[in-house]
Write a protein that binds this DNA or RNA. Structure first.
Length: 487
RNA sequence: UCCUCAGUAGCUCAAUCGGUAGAGCAGAUGGCUGUUAACCAUAAGGUUGGGGGUUCAAGUCCCUCCUGAGGAGCCA
């Protein structure tokens, strides 16, 4: 739960941090004022930040200043005894100021203390057509100004949580001995599985070199072959898993699918852990531990932001997250899930049927109606899953798992990998793929292969789940979606 | 990519059956001694997304394109 109203918890920078780097910056952060206001009371301080809002009367005025160090604003009061009072009341919203004044107890309700300004200097004036106003803006409008929206409460909270969440993920894995592997962004193989890829080329698109048969001659391209942006680091990281035992990737991923939904972006980040000497059960335990760890981490490190989300974005957010922390995640096989869905009272647009993939409406029913908490669905028919997933003894299902969470849907997808050389080779052929494209991958089974497993976690979907934000475009600084790569 | 809805002042929205395009906020000017999205007053602010059509008359009806949102598929 959030600390008292006067604290500004971890997540911003501090003067101590500056001093430890041998830099005396000479001004005080708002974060520090909120945490040390009792000692700082009646002292003269300098602050630097941007005007969030300003209210003026005839002889005095208030500025709410935000310096990015913490979620809260500092109320600054100044009177017409200031030499530049008449100019100051006209400084537009968004202007950057350097203010010197005394920290005093506030006589009015709403804030325990305020800065009594003695000097207000402009560092950078804002123009009169500053798009952000003293009112609520729609997310759609703010998406048109992604370079300015981090100056709003919601987006300042979102992107601080996003930053902390990345830290939480590294922290979780490093505490458990995982090695962080940077798999390539540019990939030379198109064997990473389904998903349209973005071509990477230096060829002249207006006049590409042709072979005898008039096909484009990629031998003359930069890498001497066709290359694309990666859609997953999994296959690559498996090699490192069989050396380091516990590894993970965390980096950008690119999908050229023409997806227009709240949950899809063309460029997004993915976390892919891979563990050796492990089966599907170990894999699911890791996923559950990780999800709970990052929730706990964010609740502790960003209480003000989380309180804000709970008030203005989704009023059941904190309750929902607390329930996840308290719950033991549910486990259910695909076959059982189909049975449950077929017996359900709800009428589905697509009747559930063994052999077909679960529809969004089915997933929502399971996580939101039946269990009302995260649920792992396991052991899918082999035909609807990737070739590298381990074939179960029944010969018709594979050791796959999807984690479905209420409101967001599929947040994690993973599997135990097929470690048996012969079975894997046969699966590649069955799926209509060419074994020669997977020689190096098959080699991992030839040279000391062991049972191993892993999963992929959509980073943005995690941010959405933790903040209650409903559109992926609002948790990415500069989102890329079909027909949108501005800025 | 498919389905549905939407696009009117800088922003958020209104405009009845097709009949002179309005309000709040922001911005401007003036007022106000403790404000919290401050408040009060005044003036200003428009090629109704682009193009074409029907009509005496189109923000409104038709066609088309563009853009956005929601849903579906694909997935993370």
């Amino acid at each position: 739960m959030p600390a008292g109203a006067t604290s500004c918890p971890p997540g911003g920078f501090t003067l101590q941090w500056n001093l430890s780097r041998g830099v005396t910056m000479g001004w005080t952060t708002i974060k520090q004022i909120f945490s040390d206001h009792e000692q700082l009371l009646n002292q003269v301080l300098e602050v630097r930040g941007w005007i969030r809002t300003q209210r003026e009367s005839k002889n005095f005025a208030f500025i709410e200043l935000n310096d990015g160090s913490c979620f809260k604003n500092l109320q600054v009061i100044y009177s017409d005894t200031l030499a530049n009072f008449n100019e100051a009341v006209k400084y537009p919203l968004g202007s950057a100021l350097k203010i010197t004044g005394t920290l005093v107890a506030s006589p009015a309700a709403g804030q325990p203390f305020e800065l009594q300004a003695e000097k207000i200097e402009v560092i950078g004036l804002s123009a009169l057509d500053y798009p952000l106003q003293k009112k609520r803006h729609s997310f759609e409008f703010l998406r048109t100004i992604p370079h300015l929206r981090p100056r709003t409460n919601t987006f300042m909270a979102v992107f601080r949580v996003r930053s902390l969440l990345a830290y939480a993920i590294h922290s979780f894995f490093h505490e458990r001995g995982f090695v962080y592997v940077h798999t390539p962004i540019i990939t030379g193989s198109d064997c990473e599985g389904a998903g349209q890829m973005f071509r990477v080329t230096t060829l002249d698109l207006k006049n590409p070199p042709r072979r005898q048969d008039s096909e484009i001659d990629f031998n003359q391209d930069f890498f001497g072959k066709e290359t694309n942006l990666t859609v997953s680091g999994q296959l690559n990281v498996e090699g490192f898993c069989l050396a380091f035992n516990r590894v993970y990737t965390f980096g950008p991923t690119f999908r050229a699918e023409n997806s227009n939904t709240q949950r899809h972006a063309s460029e997004f980040w993915m976390i892919e852990p891979e563990i050796a000497f492990a089966d599907l059960g170990d894999n699911m335990q890791l996923a559950e531990d990780m999800l709970k760890y990052i929730i706990r981490f964010i609740l502790e490190q960003a209480p003000q932001e989380m309180e804000f989300f709970n008030r203005f974005i989704n009023t059941s957010l904190l309750q929902r997250l607390q329930r996840v922390l308290d719950a033991k995640f549910e486990h259910i096989t695909y076959t059982r899930a189909i049975e449950l869905l077929q017996k359900a009272d709800s009428v589905f647009t697509f009747p559930p049927q063994w052999g077909s993939d679960l529809q969004t409406e089915h997933e929502r029913y399971l996580s939101e109606k039946v269990f009302q908490k995260p649920v792992f669905v396991t052991d899918y028919p082999k035909e609807i899953k990737a070739f590298y997933m381990r074939l179960n003894d029944d010969g018709r299902t594979v050791a796959a798992m999807d984690l479905l969470v209420p409101d967001v849907g599929e947040i994690i997808g993973g599997s135990q990998r097929e470690e048996r050389h012969g079975v894997l080779k046969q699966r590649i052929t069955e799926m209509g793929l060419k074994t020669e494209d997977y020689e190096w991958y098959l080699n991992l089974r030839k040279f000391g292969g062991v049972p191993h497993a892993g999963f992929g976690l959509g980073f943005e979907r995690s941010v959405m789940y933790l903040t209650g934000m409903e559109n992926i475009r609002d948790v990415i600084p500069y989102p890329r979606t079909p027909k949108n790569a501005e800025f």
